[in-house]
């Protein structure tokens, strides 16, 4: 994980590491090596990483390759239902999956805040290792930098992922046609609601858990259906932003129905209380699929057999009557355009 050769001394155990992260942990010297050798290498355990070279040398198949990268700066870095570690793995893995790729490798780049308890770092790294194993990916390269206290919120992680796309598979919004069906893999807004409820520290007691999850099983279960046009994971900006983007790119109108969209009861609660719109809250374990009408039932049936998408539902259809815009059919049967949100949502009293 670092450019220099390791100073070969007796390897430390996790307990022997200093209690908190220090600036020197990012300097490339002895402390950096200790951290990598004691913490990351055993946890992420794979031959590429163990080689500790300047790069990971991969042996790709002949399939097409998918590449994706994402930075994670979530605050707080531990939230109900997950932490920045599993989020960083699942987020990039899911981005690969949305292109139909089989995720294979990740790199992880850490920005640590001086003073971060080593235990916390180990906890996050362990979550990453577990998430990576579940997602079937290896973390094969990485980097560690430390910034001064106050310059980061604990830690930030950037992951880059590589996956392979089977021959003949080409999901793209360009393939969306009027009459297609829009499916979402479960409840929406869980991650955004869980983070917001925490961030504003407004003393709400709730059981809201982030939905952070790897979508590998879901995608693999339905990948062979030829009727799948494309998939997206509605992360930042939420479901509304995703259907808006798909409408824009396809030049069609994804119309979703308010009555078909399901929210967990307490996500509903926090949205009502703080005046937030769940359509714009982030999801970290959900996908939106646009599917040919004749295969929608089959797709739904299969998705519902997978744990991560057991609540999958058809939430709308594609039309060509408001080209380039997504729209929402409301409870009372009216249709309005879904705009992109200009600013982050803040709690409201009014």
């Amino acid at each position: 994980m670092n450019r220099q050769r390791l100073a070969r001394s007796r390897p430390l155990t996790m307990e022997e590491l200093p209690d908190v992260v220090q600036i020197a942990h990012g300097s490339g010297g002895k402390l950096t090596h200790q951290l990598i050798e004691t913490l990351f290498v055993p946890l992420f355990d794979n031959p590429c990483l163990k080689a500790l070279g300047d790069q990971a040398i991969l042996d790709p198949s002949t399939e097409r390759m998918a590449l994706s990268t994402d930075a994670f700066v979530v605050k707080p870095y531990v939230f109900p239902g997950g932490n920045i570690g599993d989020l960083a793995v699942n987020g990039t893995v899911n981005d690969l999956l949305m292109g139909g790729a089989t995720p294979a490798y990740l790199t992880a780049s850490f920005i640590l805040e001086e003073g971060l308890p080593t235990k916390e770092l180990a906890f996050v790294a362990e979550s990453m290792a577990i998430a990576a194993k579940k997602a079937g990916v290896q973390i094969v390269a990485g980097d560690t930098k430390v910034v001064e206290r106050g310059a980061a919120d604990g830690l930030y992680i950037t992951t880059t992922g590589v996956g392979f796309v089977p021959k003949g598979l080409q999901w793209s919004p360009a393939h969306i046609r009027a009459g297609d069906v829009v499916i979402v893999s479960g409840t929406i807004g869980d991650h955004g609601a869980s983070v917001l409820a925490h961030r504003f520290g407004i003393d709400f007691e709730s059981q809201i858990q982030s939905d952070t999850a790897c979508l590998r099983e879901v995608v693999m279960a339905v990948r062979d259906l030829p009727g799948i046009r494309c998939m997206r994971d509605p992360t930042r900006g939420g479901l509304a932003t995703t259907v808006q983007e798909l409408s824009h790119t396809s030049g069609l109108n994804l119309r979703i129905r308010e009555t078909s969209i399901v929210l967990q009861e307490d996500v509903r609660g926090i949205c009502e209380v703080l005046g937030l719109d769940a359509l714009y809250l982030a999801n970290e374990g959900k996908l939106v699929a646009v599917v040919a009408p004749e295969e929608a039932d089959e797709c739904l049936r299969i998705m519902r057999t997978v744990k991560e998408s057991k609540d999958a539902a058809v939430i709308g259809e594609v039309t060509d009557d408001i080209p380039g815009f997504a729209s929402l059919e409301t409870y009372i049967g009216a249709v309005r355009v879904l705009d992109l949100l200009s600013l982050d949502q803040l709690p409201r009293i009014c």
Partner: peptide, 20 residues
Amino acid sequence: EGTCAAYYRYQLVTVQTGGV
């Protein structure tokens, strides 16, 4: 929820058979 922001955000579109 200011009048103008609401108008801007939800740009009302009436969808009827035959168009907008």
